[in-house]
């Protein structure tokens, strides 16, 4: 069973890679998107308490504000608008 699944996932991986290789632009968009997603997650770890998620270190994270303030407001908007996130995620997997 396990073997089958890993074989399947290999094929899937290959298909993905093949697909990305064919459409460089699209691929870069995905990479870029992924980078932004990781950053969004990071923002959550840094400033989660702004959304009501307790953060053990939030006092120290204030010193990052000068560099992140600009991204903070749009990020909060994105996080609060879950529908928007789902739409974004869907767009990411649109392989047309």
């Amino acid at each position: 069973m396990k073997k089958d699944r890993s074989a399947l996932s290999k094929i899937w991986e290959f298909l993905c890679l093949f697909h990305h290789g064919t459409f460089v632009d699209k691929r870069m968009a995905v990479v870029r998107k992924e980078a932004y997603d990781i950053n969004d997650n990071l923002m959550m770890l840094l400033f989660g308490d702004f959304l009501g998620i307790p953060n053990p270190i939030s006092y120290y994270m204030l010193e990052l504000l000068p560099y992140m303030a600009e991204d903070l407001v749009p990020w909060q908007r994105r996080m609060q608008n879950r529908k928007f996130i789902i739409a974004e995620k869907a767009a990411q997997y649109d392989f047309d």
Partner: peptide
């Protein structure tokens, strides 16, 4: 800022 500033830690 106020929130973080007055957080428990």
């Amino acid at each position: 800022i106020e929130i973080a500033y007055t957080s428990p830690g």
